[in-house]
Amino acid sequence: MSVELDHPVVAAYLDQLDRAATAAGLSGGRRAELRAEIRAHVHDALAAEPELTDPVVSGVLDRLGPVEEIVAAEGTGAGGVGGAGADPQAPPPPPSLPPPGAPPSWGALEYVALALLTVGQVVLPVVGPVAGVACAWASTRWSRGGKIAATVLGVLVPLLVVLAAAAVWLTAGGSSVEVGPVPASTGFLPPPTVTAGGG
């Protein structure tokens, strides 16, 4: 559906935009708004193209312009398109109109993903988290970072729990097995080999 937004060139462009906006001192709310609008723009522009090739994606981003130019047009006097009405003060947080949370970043799919990744771990041990990760990656609202976080939550955390349980079981019950420098108390955590060299 909006696979194009996961295109590496698009993701890199949005990351550059975030970095430029952060460097320019834009507030978190404004950064989120700007990113959401640029993201929707890219989606609409690519949806209007007959086919999705790398040159087409690059062309859409070229027309958007360099991220520095977009951020510079945010109102610090360096007008990108219309410098009219630029107030001489630094851009304050918007007074009252824009909602702080910016775009709606949660819909039914995202709530289902979260439920599967949390409650689903217990109710549906394997299927739940896997389905949750699938839902997260199908989301058009979550960023790439959010999807990766969901994957960590859904797959790696239970995996670590299983490994920890196995380690505990091996050290407690199966003492004949000599595998491990893993202490029973800490499970999968690395052993505290830091010798206290205090004296």
Partner: peptide, 30 residues
Amino acid sequence: SEGTIYPLLARLRRDGLVVTTWQESETGPP
């Protein structure tokens, strides 16, 4: 540069010349 329209729109909003609403899109992000 097409992207510079968004800072412009933000300025218009701050000046009280436009108001905005987020709406779901059937095909992509809101």
